[in-house]
Design a protein around this nucleic acid. Sequence first.
DNA 1: CTTGACCCTGTGGTAGATACAGGCTGTCAA
DNA 2: TTGACAGCCTGTATCTACCACAGGGTCAAG
Lengths: 145, 145
Amino acid sequence: MRIGEIAKRSDCDVETVRFYEREGLLDVPAREANGYRRYSEMHLVQLNFIRHCRSLGMGLADVRTLRSFQANPELACDEINQLIDGQIARIHQQVESLRLLERQLHMLRDTCHANQKISECGIIRNLTQAAEGEGCSCHPFGKPN
Amino acid sequence: MRIGEIAKRSDCDVETVRFYEREGLLDVPAREANGYRRYSEMHLVQLNFIRHCRSLGMGLADVRTLRSFQANPELACDEINQLIDGQIARIHQQVESLRLLERQLHMLRDTCHANQKISECGIIRNLTQAAEGEGCSCHPFGKPN
DNA sequence: CTTGACCCTGTGGTAGATACAGGCTGTCAA
DNA sequence: TTGACAGCCTGTATCTACCACAGGGTCAAG
């Protein structure tokens, strides 16, 4: 199949397929006489594997690692477990900080309900006061990373 | 104060301060005779405001918008509410999809506990099978964005 | 007089794509 | 036959929000 078809069948962009090839994640395909890429079913499996890992939030470096593990089936799978555990920890961490963020935003939002002038807007006042180090009426803000 | 001090007092990097200036988020400071940037307390408030918004997960475009609102206190604050509401929706969305992701990763992790060979590893098998379109023993995987 | 901590500009890199520019190939209809 | 249009090619630039240099200037202390 050609690049347009494999892209459609794996639900991603044509440019993304070429990008994965450049990155060494997807095997280099054969070429037709006119220079067009010619993909096999194996490429489709590879591409779906990559997209699946990406949908689990893994970075391309992790995908590369998993693919090399696949290529060496005699190795022990401790490293795979570690990789997945690391991924779980990262995601958990992200969830926690985003939930905190969500609560902070709700509190901020509650400081302004009515349609009033900006000079009286609780949100702007809140954000500005925090910036002036005068504390904040709705919560103790965290520092950016 | 000089750039090193304002950076330290707003808990960010010197390069980041120059970056905000280039991006037009932080007012251009005066210069000393030797060319060094000279900041006032006003700049510190501006910088803290930016860092505070960033800590709430807002993008620099939103910060720019908020700063322009600050500069026009006679406007109604409907737009500010919309901006914050949009931010809340984005964060909520992110939390939800990450929580789903976390559950999926836990299920995936549960398919491999023992120290065994990769050829028998449930994780690799799971990821590969999903890629082959044979379904997945632990859950229905979502597609990447 | 040298060391070391600052500061300057400018450029390039990160992740994971996305979006062209500019050009070739292939197929269909008028 | 000609023209339109979709699809493919390479290569480069763009995006976010910075971080990390290189290569150089400035300044106070020892």
